[in-house]
Amino acid sequence: MSGEDPRYGEEVRRRMATLPGAADLPPGPGLIVAGAGDREQGAEVLLQARVVGGRAAALSFRAFGCPHFLATASWLTDRLRGHGRTEFEAWDWREAAAALEVPPSKFGRLLVIQDAVRTLARNWPGDDPSTV
């Protein structure tokens, strides 16, 4: 994809060119999945992470939405790689809003992604957060 529309920042354009992280992780131990949003409302995301040793060794996404939404999901697969449950629980959408220059009219869509990230944290394997 190649867009030069000035409404989209450099990171969104870079992400939309190849959408890195848009895939399914292979099934196996440590795989957790979380979805949020509603296609009928224009934004739906499915996040996947493989937890190894209490940390997200790999992440991937699938998403339906506008370029800011798709790019943010892609960006997250890099941003949260290597982090544990505590970081997933604490992740805040404002970080993505700044990094990807998301306009205020789309902040609500970032909350959808935050919901998915926090659901991933709730689905984290193991019961003891201190082990993460």
């Binding site: 190649s2 989209y8 939309m16």
Partner: peptide
């Protein structure tokens, strides 16, 4: 199955 704004973006 395709969001309109992303489709427009992909067709500059």
């Amino acid at each position: 199955g395709v969001e309109g704004e992303s489709l427009l973006y992909a067709l500059p």
